[in-house]
Every structure is written in C-alpha cells, then in structure tokens.
Write a protein that binds this DNA or RNA. Sequence first.
DNA 1: TTGAAAGCGCTACCAT
DNA 2: ATGGTAGCGCTTTCAA
Lengths: 346, 346
Amino acid sequence: MRATVKDVAKLAGVSPKTVSNVINGVVFVRPETRARVEQALTELDYVPNMSARGLRNGRSGMIGLALPDLLRPYSAEITHLVVELAHERGWGVQIEQTASEPEREYELLSKARTNLVDGLILNPVNLDDSAVMSAGPLPAVVLIGDVDQDVVSQVLIDNVEAAKDMTRHLVEQGYRRIAAVGTPEIPSGSSGNGRIGGRTEAVGSAASRLRAAGYHEVLAEHGLPALDIALDRWSPQGAATVLSRFLRENEPPDALFCFTDSLAMGAVSVLWSAGLSIPGDCAVAGFDNIGESQFTVPPLTTVDFDRRAFVQAALDLLGERMADRTATPRRIVIPHRIVRRASTGY
Amino acid sequence: MRATVKDVAKLAGVSPKTVSNVINGVVFVRPETRARVEQALTELDYVPNMSARGLRNGRSGMIGLALPDLLRPYSAEITHLVVELAHERGWGVQIEQTASEPEREYELLSKARTNLVDGLILNPVNLDDSAVMSAGPLPAVVLIGDVDQDVVSQVLIDNVEAAKDMTRHLVEQGYRRIAAVGTPEIPSGSSGNGRIGGRTEAVGSAASRLRAAGYHEVLAEHGLPALDIALDRWSPQGAATVLSRFLRENEPPDALFCFTDSLAMGAVSVLWSAGLSIPGDCAVAGFDNIGESQFTVPPLTTVDFDRRAFVQAALDLLGERMADRTATPRRIVIPHRIVRRASTGY
DNA sequence: TTGAAAGCGCTACCAT
DNA sequence: ATGGTAGCGCTTTCAA
C-alpha cells in the first residue's frame, strides 16, 4: 500500500498538518522539523494522491483541450503548443475529439463541471449547435476559432480578412478563374439554393463559412465569378476526391484557394496526377501554414499566423476565467499574413 | 454551489446510497424510487465529482499517453486513435510530450502513481535512459515501440525486418547507391568511428537504430555500400538541411531510404529544388505510411502497418495490467508490409 | 510553530 | 430493496 501523509507524519513524529505544510511549502516550518519530514517523505517514497487533493481543493490541475479532429496536422500543432505551454503553468492536458459526434461537446462541458478539469479550450465545429450556447452555468471555457458570440472568451484570427487577402493575392497574380475548395456543403436534402424555410442551411465549420465569405466578397469586387467546390470530408482525401470529379467535368481553374493546407495537399496531388503543372496550369493556395506546407512540391502559398501567440493567448484567457469566473469575456484577435511561395507563382 | 448526492437524496427523499445506486446502475432499484431519484438528478442538474469518486474508488478513469513529439504526423495519428479507442472503453486521455527533456518520463511515471492516471502508454525515446528501467514499483505501463526489455508489456512492429524488406525492395528495383536518412547521429565529441571505450555511442531513437541495422544488413548481403546520412533534428526540416548539404558535396544517390515519411517529405522537397526527378534521378522511400504520404508528389513508397490494431493492442495490454498488476508482461508484434508507390518506380 | 479534528463527495459495508 | 455510517487522503479551520 502507498504511503499517506499519516504514515509520513507517524514516521517523522509530527502531525499530518506539518507534513502538508512541508509539502506545500507555504507556511514556515522549523528547519529541523522540515528535515525530519523530508527524510520520512523520501524513505516512504511518498507521492500525494491527486484525487484527494482535488477533492479537498476543488481543483484538479488539469485543463481540457477539445478539437474537432486530432488527425489534422493543424490539430497536432495546436496540441503540441497547448501541452508545452500548459506545462509551463503547471497544468496537465486532457485531450478530446469532438467532430465525430456533436454531443461530445456537451459531454465535455459537463466533464469540466465534474472537476476532472479546471478549464476547457474548445474549438467548436459549429456554433449553432455548440454546447456553449446552451443556457446554464458554464465552467471556465475559452473558444479557439472565429465564431460570433460573446458568452465566453475567445481567441481567433480574422478569417474573413485573411480569405480576402489571399483572394486578392490570387487576383493580383493575374488569375481570373479562381475556385475555392472547402466552401460549406449544401445538404443534399435541401433545395438547390440551399435555403430551407428562408434560412440558409449551410453545413460546414464556422471558419469555412467565413473564409468562403471573404473569397466571395473579393471576387465580387473584381467582377469575377465564384467557383465553389464543396467537400464531403475535410481531409486531403476529401479534397482529392471532389477535385478529381471537378476536373473530369470542367476545365481546370486558373487557381485553387484551398481553405486549409491539408486540403491543398490533396489538391496538389490530384493536379499532379492530371498532368497539370503548378502554378503554370493551375496555382494553389492554402491556409494555416502547417509545417508540411513548405515541403510540398511546389511549396505552398498560405495564410500564416503566430500559432504560439495564439495558444498563449488562449491559456492567458483561460487562466483569467479560472481565477475569476465572473470576469467579462474577452476576445483576442491574432494577426495573420500571406506567405508567398512557389505554388502561386512566386 | 453544485449539487451533491446528499442534496439529491434529500430532494428525492431517499438515502445517498440509493442515489449512488441509481447513478451507477449496478444493483436493482425499484422503478418508482429510480424515477424519483432521476427526477431530482435532473432538477438539481447533478454532476458527479470525479475527484471524490476517484478518491473513493482508487481509480481516475484516465490514462496517460506520452509521446516524444506531438508535432509529428505520426504522433497525431497515434493520439487520434488512442483518444478514440480509449473513449470506447470509457477512459479519458491525458497527453504528454517527452522528447524535450528526458526527465519528463520520470515525472510521468510518478504522476501515474499519484492516481491522476490509472495507466500509461509510453513511447520511450531511448530505453537506456528510460525511466521504466529504473528500479521501484511501476504503475500500469505499456510501451509502444520496438525496445528490448521485458519489464513491462509492449506493442511494436519488427523494425529490423521492416527495414530489411524496404532495403530489399530498393535493391530489387535496381538501385545500387542507396542512402539512408535518419541513421543515428554519432556525437561530435567522439572519435570518427563512433566508439567510446569500446562501446558504440550512437545517439538516436531505438527505432532509428533498428532500422539502420536492417538497412545495413541487407546492403551487406548484396555487397553494396552503406551511405548513412545522420540527422540533427528529427523533422522534415532536419532532413532537408542535411540532405541539401549532402547533395552539395556528393553525387545524388540512386535511392533514399528515409526512416520516417516526415523525413521523406523533407527529402522530396530538396530533390525537387535541386531539379532531380523522383524516381528517375533518385528514388525515395519512407516509413510509417502516414496519411500525407499518398499525397506527396510523387506518392511515397513506405512501410505500413495497421495502426488501429497497434493502438487497440496497446489498450488491451494496458487494461490487462490495470486489472492485474502482477500479470506477466506480454509483447505483441504487429505485422508490417511494404506499400509500393510511384516514388520508387511503381 | 505545531496539533487535533472536521469535512470535501463519494461508495462499500453492514444493517434492516 | 433501501438506509446508516464509515472512511478514502488531503487540507483547513481553530487551539494550543
């Protein structure tokens, strides 16, 4: 059986309280007492029981991180940073995946309320049916991603602006027939123009909708036609599938604006298979500047932002909320920039 | 303040024990009693306190997952599967990163002993200085990766055989000057042949050493020269850096056997920049069959294994150990196979 | 500066 | 089938 504070106290000839004092090192303990306790601590190979401590203190020292799909390189980058930067603050990270079933978000929020985690960083797939919008007392939550709400704190990049910047870049490069890969899918059950009961029923992440909006806006400014290529799966494979179908039925566009670098990788692969050169026959742009995107052939023009600052901001906001649940929610917008590489003619 | 079992019991007019019975649904409760309790449960919006439950039961319902570097696509795939498959067993996943500092492994093992996690899946960087080899009682641990020990259970692929298979494939394809990217680095402080005090002092992961061994063995069988390109950083960037340097000083090899697909992506990019065609001027092979490797240009020949079976086996073994700490450690070897794609001439 | 005792919320045991 | 009670290991009053 593992040693408890009582055992240590007995061996050191002191009370449990003194042992606790030594461990937590907050109040002053006489050096010789401290020495005796520390001796006992190592002798018994004492490790504190976190469940007990958590029960007593009401805090677990862990935060939750919920991302739609852990498989995406983008998720890996976020996870990597959250784990690293949370560790610096002494927080452990519990990780979750939400895309498979939307009800997972509810599960998570309630898990946050079960004291298993002290706070939650949540990347909601879709705000409409996101659990944060439900009534009821929320645990400390920070949203990552560009969604329109003011219930909880959030950190984001300006997706509309970024998409506009990228679309402008493509227009400036001289491309005219510019297609977007990853625009929200219109559900097959709805009518042709995607409207049900007067409300647009688009399926897709918040980011996807905002990027599509920026793309449309700039094309409209220039009097250019929009060419939306919707996805059924948000992965290189998904992009490859719809793009191959598109190329079978249409002339290749001048340029493809893919709403993530992962999608762009699928697109690059399909263009290559079709014998089309990049950017000669068709340029390709991505979004996110994942680590891999500078190693594609050719390297990928993309939207970059300081991911470390992004995650650091999320943790700052979370710490704020954990300390004071009543603080007013804050929004932090992380700046973005276009990284020009060979895939769009640089 | 949040509702507790007591509050629920009072509202439902029953005892706390009955509430607990309803929640855990193990013993039979009279339907009308159950109904009253469930009514109270929802009315008070009851959520159990996991710290209390953990303290009482001695289990937290969480497992730890420790990987060297969460940034790697391979890590993302493992994480994705562990989270998904652990969820099916009702386990949460706490995630950690160990490569930065080796002492993290010790931290983790002791964390496992603090009841924060009930078990640990550990991918050790290097067994020599891995914490599992230290004396002392271990928590439930399963190693993933091919390391030579019999202290704890482990799941692995046969790295030597896989590397031999791939090297044979390259030889059969007619390549003769076959270089390996990712062989263990010889520390700069040591003498030229990498020996100090009669013992080889190679720096690198266990997998890297085993893959190098398989590669060397097959080349020797065929009387072909080995060409080791060591790495200072285990990333596409790292591979790109050393390979560019190599190409500046040497003729390009006939083929490159990169010890992971990530490294291969860096290599592909460098070959492309150098104006070399793949596989015409230089073939490239990878290892792991990460999702991205079928979308490189050209698609990558690589070593594949059933990752889901791999993770499932790790969880099986972990469950075994968690149930019975005294069970004899088991080893499960997951089969591998070569996936032939265009990068080696298919 | 240190000790004694209470209690965090839950479930197991022993009654009934 | 249900209730009462004790106790998991820790920390935090309150006293000494």
